[in-house]
Amino acid sequence: MAEMDPCSIGPGPAGLLPPSAASCGVVLPRKGEGLVEGRIVGEQAALEVMARELLTRKHPTVFPGPLVLWDWRDGVSPKAAAVLELAEEIPGVQIIPMPDYRPIYPKIDPEAVINPCHPNLTIWHNKIEVCVFVGVHCHYANITLRMIRAGTNCYTVTLCHSAGHEDSMASLPFCGAEQVRALTGTIRRLKRQGLRPLHGEARGIRLTGAQQAVQEGLVWQHGDGA
């Protein structure tokens, strides 16, 4: 089990039912600031850390939530486009959606979806060591992030439309399309400056087995192959 300073919010596993970051004294950033591992930093510094982690950890994955997946009001499309643009810049990236918050029983397909009730299953199965949450309602994101910190070694990045998340390792509050593009820009700059991404120069978003099967019109049964 990873040992950590009570106020340092790093990748886990932190063990069953870790105290919430807020109860450990971590406070939310204000507009123009970011949160990195429990500390408030400037927005640019937070973007720098996010970009670096996304490029250098295994199996980076974007988890878009309902607020960005569904075109439910004006302003969603530009943000959705910005998220896709961000994903395109991260070599080896996958996109696994969280389309809603329904409990999924009797069995979740971790290559098709991430569910707030058991996000660890998707992270374990796909061996994800860094992820970005974007467009998830905060009350679900908070519990999801804590569960991920409790049971996995995944580095969580949140691009929050509201006040940010204490329980993620790097969080940016009040994120619209502009802030998402700023992260994309930071990733491009780091690559130009010579940072070599862990997953090489591969471009394009990698489909999961389940997504490939759906695209090819096959019936996907998790565990049995398509």
């Binding site: 878009p64 997946l69 569904w70 009001r73 499309s77 959705a80 996109i95 389309p99 397909d109």
Partner: peptide
């Protein structure tokens, strides 16, 4: 019905059930 439209570009990542 806007709440039932997938944002442009995301349909291919959606689970079959949602499609």
């Amino acid at each position: 019905l806007r709440t039932l439209q997938v944002a442009p570009g995301f349909m291919r990542f959606m689970p079959k059930e949602y499609q």
